[in-house]
């Protein structure tokens, strides 16, 4: 939404805007799908890994930011979240929440 408004008003740019947004979505979905190896497809963990398919985006975001800050107890998430920008962590949280809201 925001991305679309930011595009200049010339018609050509407007037609280019759609693939640009789709590309951003694809990038985040690829990034987030890599988490499924530990958390299960769409984070619906079938075993002893914590799943978060029932969590709202804000709760997921909060956990990820706390792992990054080192304020939440972790065996491994602290090592993983450091690879991502805050914006990408938030976008992944939204992606998981949206997938599971369906």
């Amino acid at each position: 939404m925001k991305g679309r408004l930011a595009i200049p008003t010339i018609a050509l740019a407007a037609t280019l805007a759609v693939p640009a947004i789709a590309q951003a979505d694809t990038r985040i979905s690829i990034m987030a799908d890599a988490c499924n190896g530990c958390h299960g497809t769409d984070a619906a963990s079938p075993g002893s890994m914590p799943g978060f398919s029932n969590k709202k985006a804000d709760a997921i975001k909060k956990a990820l930011m706390e792992y990054k800050a080192g304020t939440k107890e972790a065996t491994i998430m602290n090592r993983i979240v450091k690879a991502y920008s805050d914006a990408d962590l938030a976008a992944m949280a939204n992606y998981f929440a949206a997938k599971n809201a369906k």
Binding site: N36, G37, C38, H39, G40, S45, P46, G47, S48, M49, T75, I76, R79, I80, V81, K82, A83
Partner: peptide, 29 residues
């Protein structure tokens, strides 16, 4: 600036937790 191995010298609880997560990982993957 990311990734790496488990801490050296960790206590039994930590190693046990990671053993449980190893099985959890296997179920997930």
């Amino acid at each position: 600036g990311s990734g790496g191995v488990s801490p050296a010298g960790a206590n039994y609880q930590f190693r046990k937790k990671e053993a449980d997560f190893a099985e959890g990982w296997y179920a997930s993957v």
